[in-house]
C-alpha cells in the first residue's frame, strides 16, 4: 500500500513538473508544447514545407513547424548579437559555412547565411549594413 502511495506521489510530481515551460528542443518539441510555452501566436502562415506552418509571435519571433514538430526558429538579434564578431567569438571552434541568399534588390549586395550546424545556428548577415539581421536556431548536429 505504502509503495503504491509513494509511486502515485512520484508520478504526480513528475506530471506536475512535466507541465512547466520547457526550453525549446528543435526537432522534438510539439506544437502543443510550443503553445503551452509561448502562448498562442499572433499570426499563423502556411509555408511550402511538409505540413508546414510558421507561427509568428511578437517582435517578429517565428517558429517553423513541420509535421507537428517545431524544427527551427527565426529571431531578431539583441544588441551584441548584431555583430558577426560576437558570434565568431562565441563559436570559436565552429567553421562557419557561408552562402549567399537570393538577391532581393538589384543593386544591393545579397544577404548571406553563416551556418554552424554543430551549434544549430544560422546567422543571416546583411553586408550592406554589416550586421546580423536574423538568428535561426535548429537542432544541432
Amino acid at each position: 500500500m505504502r509503495k503504491i502511495v509513494l509511486l502515485s506521489l512520484l508520478l504526480t510530481i513528475t506530471a506536475a513538473c512535466g507541465n512547466k515551460a520547457k526550453s525549446i528542443k528543435y526537432g522534438e518539441m510539439s506544437v502543443s508544447d510550443l503553445v503551452a510555452s509561448k502562448g498562442e501566436p499572433i499570426k499563423e502562415e502556411e509555408i511550402p514545407r511538409p505540413d508546414g506552418k510558421m507561427y509568428i509571435y511578437e517582435n517578429n519571433e517565428k517558429y517553423q513547424i513541420e509535421n507537428g514538430v517545431v524544427v527551427n526558429s527565426f529571431k531578431n538579434p539583441n544588441k551584441d548579437e548584431k555583430m558577426l564578431l560576437y558570434w565568431k567569438h562565441k563559436y570559436e571552434d565552429c567553421h562557419f559555412t557561408i552562402k549567399q541568399l537570393d538577391q532581393k534588390v538589384l543593386h544591393l549586395k545579397p544577404e548571406e547565411e553563416y551556418n554552424c550546424k554543430a551549434a544549430g545556428i544560422t546567422l543571416i548577415y546583411d553586408p550592406n549594413i554589416e550586421q546580423v539581421v536574423r538568428v535561426v536556431e535548429y537542432a544541432a548536429e
Binding site: 541568399l101 537570393d102 532581393k104 544577404e111 547565411e113 536574423r134 535561426v136
Partner: peptide
C-alpha cells in the same frame, strides 16, 4: 538545400 534559408519580399 542551399542556401538553407529563403527570405522573400
Amino acid at each position: 538545400v542551399t542556401p538553407q534559408i529563403t527570405r522573400t519580399l
